[in-house]
């Protein structure tokens, strides 16, 4: 008897700003759509624990996609993408997520992302509060400078290992060794996209002057950050949440920048609380 996972994968073709993408996503569950974005330079396997969480998938349709150029989602199929440097912008990133949600006909979804996925969650709350039931920005802040580095692409170093070991201590030393090395493994696979992702994360994403225009009473914003995250430290997230009308901040103890991937059993404790708050605020 084959030991199949309940998680299944599919491709969907979408058009974003004139670019055609064939997007790969994993999904499992039923109920409220919970759309999940991986971190920069990674892919949807970071959500492997959530995708197989029977308690959560009983009430939530968990969808974890690979952003274009990551995992099994190719670069755009209708342009010669190799002739220009990849630099992800906030505009394109937001349009991609909305186009994907539309293509999948997601009704009032919750969006959750970590790191550069957390930062785009804030962008969605600002730009498209009409399209999402709520957002959960994980390891996010209004501004996150300092990681758009040439080292990720240096031709004299092993880019896969520089990216993977360069993010190693974004994780907490208490997180299980197997899960930290799996996260390391994912990071060896995405070095070409990593730097371009970080253009959004550290350069194009800057909401310092816009937080007062986010209304979490309309689209709840529940921010969560781990105490071992040095890139977006807890005080940066807390300071961001405090400036959002109705924003909520949850501090996650003894976990780092990749909580869903480095220590899912601990992360799910905080995630369940975030989902409870959203149910309470949205009535469903």
């Amino acid at each position: 008897m084959a030991r199949h996972s309940p998680v299944t994968g599919r491709y969907v073709t979408i058009e974003v700003d004139g670019l055609e993408y064939k997007v790969f996503y994993l999904h499992n569950g039923q109920g409220t759509p919970l759309l999940c974005q991986h971190t920069a330079g990674a892919h949807n396997h970071q959500w492997r624990g959530l995708l197989e969480d029977e308690e959560i998938t009983k009430d939530y349709n968990v969808i974890a996609y690979d952003l274009a150029r990551h995992g099994k989602s190719d670069p755009p199929l209708n342009v010669e993408w190799w002739k220009s440097e990849y630099k992800l912008t906030a505009d394109h990133y937001v349009n991609f997520i909305v186009a994907l949600a539309d293509a999948l006909e997601l009704d009032d979804p919750i969006f959750m992302g970590s790191s550069f996925g957390g930062n785009v969650a804030l962008q969605l709350a600002l730009r498209r509060p009409d399209r999402f039931r709520a957002v959960i920005p994980v390891e996010a802040a209004d501004y996150a400078p300092g990681f758009f580095l040439d080292w990720w692409h240096h031709p004299h170093a092993n880019a896969a290992q520089v990216c993977a070991s360069g993010v190693w201590d974004l994780m907490a030393p208490q997180s299980p060794e197997m899960d930290r090395w799996l996260t390391w493994h994912y990071y060896t696979q995405g070095s070409e996209a990593f730097k371009g992702d970080l253009y959004f994360y550290s350069v194009d994403h800057d909401l310092r002057a816009d937080l007062d225009r986010i209304d979490a009473r309309r689209c709840p914003v529940v921010m969560m950050t781990g105490t071992y995250d040095y890139l977006t430290p807890p005080e940066a997230t807390e300071n961001t949440a405090r400036q959002i009308k109705g924003g909520i901040y949850i501090e996650m103890t003894d976990i780092g920048h990749f909580p869903m991937s480095e220590n899912y059993p601990l992360f799910r404790v905080y995630l369940k609380e975030a989902l409870r708050i959203i149910r309470e605020r949205t009535g469903g």
């Binding site: 300092g146 080292w151 430290p233």
Partner: peptide, 28 residues
């Protein structure tokens, strides 16, 4: 927190990385 690696301590504490950093990256 922030004493748990060379990146975290150089971003948030007093650790300085000096010399030929390329060699560090090659052996990271």
């Amino acid at each position: 927190p922030h004493f748990h690696g060379i990146w975290s301590a150089s971003f948030r504490q007093d650790l300085k990385l000096e010399g030929n950093i390329l060699v560090l990256m090659q052996n990271l």
